[in-house]
Design a protein around this nucleic acid. Sequence first.
DNA 1: TTCTCTGCAAACGCTTTGCATTTCA
DNA 2: TGAAATGCAAAGCGTTTGCAGAGAA
Lengths: 162, 162
Amino acid sequence: MSSPCSRHPHPHRLIQQPLTELTEKLRSKSRKITAPRQAILEVLRRHQHPITNKEIHTALGTADCDLATVYRNLHTLEDMGMVRRFDFGDGVARFELLEEGDDGHHHHLVCTGCSAVVEVEGCFPTELELALARRHGFTRVTHKLEFFGLCPKCAPAAPASP
Amino acid sequence: MSSPCSRHPHPHRLIQQPLTELTEKLRSKSRKITAPRQAILEVLRRHQHPITNKEIHTALGTADCDLATVYRNLHTLEDMGMVRRFDFGDGVARFELLEEGDDGHHHHLVCTGCSAVVEVEGCFPTELELALARRHGFTRVTHKLEFFGLCPKCAPAAPASP
DNA sequence: TTCTCTGCAAACGCTTTGCATTTCA
DNA sequence: TGAAATGCAAAGCGTTTGCAGAGAA
């Protein structure tokens, strides 16, 4: 890919951060380390693609807590910069745990058939974004970019197309 | 901008299509030309940026119809390819009327302060998208891309930043 | 007359919120 | 003890849907 941006240090989303490191971050901002919160972090740590509140809630299993608590915690974690919100355009928020020092800026290729997700290394070229900002006098410009298509498994089901 | 895509024949969104041409398109697909439908098309024709169902409903004024009718009509128009849906990530669908022959693929720069919208000429380089599709074996790959930032009017309100 | 569309009202799914209670520090 | 977090239930919001009646072809 010709012009990947530099904001993307963790292309494989393998969260190496131990749970203790995560809870430490909570402690440092005087947030309490509760059972639901730890369980939610564990679920996020195990998943390498964005997951919804409901999926998190289901994945909690024994460590079950109220769905509202999941929502509240994801807001908290987002505010603290520990988690990043993604929008696949289906009206449901999805979240990924962030590695230390990663701002989480990256994109996905989502199968419109089976919802399989591939993490994308490329990014909208930064120069284009800067040019755009300059041209219209905007500051603090970012972008949201997601790709959609049919994965190899789902492709045969649909009529031929490039 | 280095690599604009070719799918964007109408950068200024000045809808020149007369209402009769639009209703003709409806007629050709055996959809009825009703008062609410005409009024909705008129509203869309007058607006050069994506607007929400509720905004359309409000803009109807005297030609008022049920909000559900607005929703239903925008689905119909979308299915017919006369309108394109956009998602600014705030959980509300927005629509733009399409010119004949335009598939509506373009992007926006949205002010996070006042919601001002600028239509963007640039696009994610097609070659990158194709490379991405090839690499992961996906077909029919498209993307959703929107830019967000602070417009000149809203910039002073926030602390200095590039 | 037939098929589509509309209004109305109810329901839906995701998300947020108020409040009393519990839990962590 | 005090601040923060939780469970529960209700509400909020955008959107969809069922149904009976109205309207276009």
